[in-house]
């Protein structure tokens, strides 16, 4: 029980003290999980990251699940995952409740008018990074444009595009990798 609580608290600290998840969490994980607790090795963390990116879901959650499972099985994975999301749930719920009461104030509306523009730029930056990593030849360029056009023009769930693109990647590679 003590070990489970330890898993929960360690991951709560990681979740509560890092902004942005994903790779932003890596230094914190190295310090807390590798150096302080010896739960996993440095190499294992890198493997988990690689796998966390290739498996569905939030990378930080995936890594937490891996480490919890490795140490304490299914129960351990539940405790570490609960730990990593607990600070988010508490902090965001408070902010959302606060904003709901003040959303109609002109001050808040003006502030968010500016913030939305900034978010647009942040999204554009994220897309540029993904573009550099993902669009590497003609076939991937075609997939990217097709998904973009499909999302803009059709009213279908992103699930359809995710499955379709996975299939397309498999088919292209099977056909010998178009250049």
């Amino acid at each position: 029980m003590k070990e489970l609580l330890d898993l929960f608290l360690t991951f709560a600290r990681i979740g509560g003290l890092t902004f942005g998840g994903g790779y932003a969490m890596l230094p914190m994980l190295q310090k807390e999980v590798v150096e302080k607790r010896n739960w996993v090795s440095e190499e294992e963390i890198m493997d988990y990251y690689a796998l966390g990116q290739c498996t569905p879901g939030i990378i930080a959650v995936n890594v937490a699940t891996f480490i919890g499972y490795k140490n304490k099985g299914v129960i351990g994975s539940i405790f570490s995952t609960a730990g990593v999301i607990a600070p988010s749930v508490v902090i965001i719920t408070i902010i959302a409740a606060f904003l709901q009461n003040f959303a109609d104030l002109p001050l808040v509306q003006n502030a968010f008018g500016g913030i939305r523009v900034c978010v647009g730029v942040l999204v554009l930056n994220a897309v540029q990074k993904l573009w550099k990593k993902g669009v590497i030849d003609k076939a991937t360029l075609l997939i990217c444009l097709a998904v973009f056009a499909g999302t803009m023009l059709l009213d279908v769930s992103p699930v359809v595009f995710v499955i379709g693109a996975g299939l397309a990647g498999w088919l292209v590679k099977k056909a010998g990798g178009a250049k």
Binding site: V123, L124, A126, V127, L130, W131, K133, G134, V135, T140, L141, I143, C144, L145, A146, V147, F148, T151, P158, F161, V162, G164, A165, G166, L167, A168, G169, W170, V172, K173
Partner: peptide, 12 residues
Amino acid sequence: YGLRPAVAGLIA
């Protein structure tokens, strides 16, 4: 290989 460009398109 197929998913990465699709995610870029979806988010864009």
